[in-house]
Design a protein around this nucleic acid. Structure first.
Lengths: 342, 342
DNA sequence: CTGAAAGCGCTTACAG
DNA sequence: CTGAAAGCGCTTACAG
């Protein structure tokens, strides 16, 4: 009677290896390996027997040994921003979920690392440990240290977001077009004084949204009123200043470039006694849970963030397989017109 | 002139191995290995030379090869809930950041996997691939499939949260005590009709908070008014019903067991024209960014979620190193009394 | 269609 | 204090 066994079906020893399976079947490790991978010529009946045996003992090859043998890790990295002001947005979380889904489908694992604006030491650690085959960046900083580093090290990577560097593989929503369309729709709706409160302009996302805003005004020959446009609003204080000025200059509507800004704006408007949509209208981006329970419901551009992550994961794994098509992938968006702008 | 070299300092070939370093120094791989790990007897001067050489060529040992040789992976897993209603709470995200920090400090990497209430297939995949040494669970479901599975497989794990199973290593805040204290403080403040809106009771967190609420009332000989206590409020509808009933039965204060519930409650109160804190007071848990910009500021129990993740990561890695102390670790909390209850 | 053997890049008894 | 050699669990030319 074997002592170490945990279930009846176990072969002796606690952790099964390919050698155990081979021995059990009386074939070579080569054969077992081939049956599993499907590579090389191998008899149908043999494959069946191997599979049956694997099933019976619930054998699963060691990812790490496979990795060493093939010089791959079957891990992809996801860089998560650790700056405090960003780390609570649900965007990255949902995006990560999407990447996990794509990775799991191709039997890759997802390794998380953190990056800060001026500190990519953790990113370096993970690549220098030779523990990932490629990486996904979830934030599009201009002049980003991370992209520079990865290019120099020649590590395959995908950027969730946009970059002016066309050699970078990108997956993004069309923020410019979405914002342009949103603003156009509002302008068509007999509004003309539309204000903009935008976040950190070093992010391409915010830049693109601003561009969309400007384009929409321009195409209607409306000049940009600098008293209604506020960029780099990433603190409570700067948002408050923006809202005050906007109220003073009697805008009819405020576009916020993300839901965190919008939440604050809504709160400030309430405080100031400005009623939405009666006194002023409000629209936002991203359409996350942040705004979900607001009353009135907030008009917003909706993007499928999980899908974004999923596509990015798929693209990266394709690249690792040798696919070198560097086209930028653009995802769809939806504009949800709701009571806050009516 | 070497062709493949990227920087001047490279040894021939693109990826450095321990053999390259050994050859460069004219010593054996054994020696290099020992100099790096510090294990075994080795000359001081030798160590210095090896380190210098490593530095010069920026050599970093392959984590994967080390893993195969030592039968460890130096990866820890973090199970992330993928159920839609939970996936947007910042809790898990911040917790993950904490785990990453702890892991990086011990040169471990963090691998993310998703779990759903009735689907732990991704968790299984990651452990059966032999790709992690241990795992962190970030949610304390009662009768959790994940804990059952890990125990049966004998995989070391740490639970961020609480369990009645004392063989499980746990890291948590003292939700019961925190809630009891919060309610006591409010009761002392000449309130007596305090309502409770709690989330999914299959989570120990919510159960503990309810217990705290009940204890606080009991110790003041106040009987529980079932018209003021609502559990399993995880949908918009159930929260709405709760709020309506609470307003009808003239509670003086509402305790929400988390910030997502609280956000909705605040929104519903506004809709109903109930003024906070004039008509009714409100307090919450977790104190996340969700409530940050609310006006009035909301009284809440604050917990250091990142620290929670960090401690959990540390504990797990200690366990992997052979430490088998299974004490439950309890973190501190803070009660922030703010205008919403004044 | 199948197998013996070398190799992926480390660690670690064992022997000096 | 140092090294030669075996081994971790796979994959894959190469030879049959």
């Amino acid at each position: 009677m074997a002592v170490q066994n945990k279930d009846e079906n176990s072969l002796p020893g606690s952790k099964l290896t390919i050698a155990d399976i081979a021995a059990e079947l009386g074939v070579s490790k080569t054969t077992v390996s081939r049956a599993i991978s499907g590579k090389g010529r191998i008899g149908k009946e043999t494959v069946r027997r191997v599979m049956e045996c694997i099933e019976k003992y619930n054998y699963r090859p060691s990812a790490i040994a496979k990795g060493l043998a093939t010089s791959k890790t079957y891990n992809i990295g996801v860089a998560f921003p650790a700056d405090t002001n960003l780390s609570s947005t649900p965007f990255f979380q949902i995006c990560l979920l999407g990447v996990c889904e794509a990775a799991a489908a191709m039997d890759y694992d997802v390794l998380v690392t953190t990056v800060k604006e001026n500190d990519i030491s953790q990113l370096k650690r993970i690549v220098e440990n030779h523990n990932i085959d490629g990486i996904i960046l979830t934030r599009d900083f201009m002049n980003d240290m991370a992209t520079e580093y990865l290019k120099q090290k020649d590590i395959p990577f995908v950027l969730v977001g946009s970059s002016e560097d066309s050699t970078i593989v990108q997956v993004d929503s069309n923020h410019r077009e979405a914002c342009e369309k949103l603003v156009s729709l509002l302008l068509a709706d007999k509004m003309s004084r539309i204000a903009l409160i935008a976040g950190d302009m070093r992010h391409m996302v915010n830049l693109s949204r601003c561009e969309g805003y400007i384009n929409a005004l321009r195409s209607r020959q409306i000049s940009i009123d600098t008293e209604l446009v506020f960029t780099d609003c990433d603190s409570q204080v700067s948002i408050e200043q923006a809202v005050n000025s906007i109220l003073k200059h009697q805008a009819e509507c405020i576009i916020c470039t993300d839901d965190v800004i919008c939440t604050r704006v809504l709160s400030l408007l309430r405080e100031a006694g400005a009623h939405v949509p009666g006194d002023i209208k409000v629209a936002s981006f991203h359409d996350s849970i942040y705004l979900e329970s607001n009353n009135p419901p907030v008009t917003a551009v909706g993007m499928d963030v999980k899908e974004l992550g999923c596509i990015a994961g798929k693209r990266l794994i394709e690249m690792l397989g040798g696919d070198i098509d560097i086209h930028k992938k653009i995802l769809d968006y939806e504009i949800h017109l709701r009571r806050s702008t009516q």
